[in-house]
């Protein structure tokens, strides 16, 4: 039996541009990465006390997750345990790992920051999204050289088709040395806003949009 799953919304933040479902929603190409992410947070009037405590990678993931969930509130339509979060990137948490390394590099002035240390794993960003939205389903973080549409579509379709989950927040969130790229989308078993079939080819098309 052939199963079909659907991409119902997608959002990307890269090169000073926020696009939702393929249309540019906000643009400012003048700012460094960290300032741009803060500006996006303010521009879309997102409010969350923990935002400023997050590292840059988690801030980026958090902002893009807020935008797709505002557009397609799957958390309101599904049980907490039926929603998965599967995200990948290339730089892991290297930006924060290096900050932690700098904090502990001087043996005579050794002060590790707990707030920095807790972000020295990339999957913490999944935790931030899960806590914010009370999501309790499957979650996995992959490290790849680049966004792998073949793997992501196959892996997530497999989870959906085996009825382990009913929907998924997934994509790519990368941040390192002022370079950043976020691309998140929702996949559901049911048709929705966009109803784009979740295939590798379709995914490549919207990722490269």
């Amino acid at each position: 039996m052939e199963y079909k799953n659907y991409i119902n919304t997608f959002c990307s933040i890269k090169n000073g541009t926020v696009s939702i479902d393929g249309s540019i929603s906000f643009e400012d190409k003048t700012l460094p990465a960290a300032d741009f992410i803060k500006l996006v947070y303010k521009h879309f009037q997102i409010s969350y006390p923990k935002f400023y405590k997050m590292d840059q990678l988690s801030r980026l993931a958090f902002v893009v997750s807020e935008l797709i969930l505002k557009n397609n509130p799957i958390t309101l339509k599904n049980e907490d345990a039926d929603i998965a979060i599967i995200i990948a990137n290339s730089a892991s948490s290297l930006e924060t790992d290096e900050e932690h390394q700098r904090n502990i590099s001087d043996k005579n002035n050794y002060f590790a920051s707990p707030a920095v240390f807790v972000y020295t794993l990339p999957n913490i960003l999944i935790g931030e999204i899960a806590i914010r939205n009370s999501i309790k389903g499957e979650n996995t973080f992959f490290i790849f050289d680049k966004f792998d549409a073949d793997f992501m579509s196959s892996y997530i379709n497999s989870l959906l088709n085996s009825n382990k989950i009913k929907c998924c927040i997934t994509g790519w969130v990368d941040f390192y040395e002022n370079k950043y790229e976020a691309f998140l989308y929702t996949v559901e078993k049911e048709k929705g806003i966009l109803s784009l079939e979740h295939t590798s080819d379709q995914l490549k098309k919207i990722y490269n949009n």
Binding site: F111, A112, S113, V118
Partner: peptide, 17 residues
Amino acid sequence: LGLDSIDALELIVLLEK
């Protein structure tokens, strides 16, 4: 201020540093 447990650790580090 709504601080959490990680903030408590940061405050301990701040006092020492």
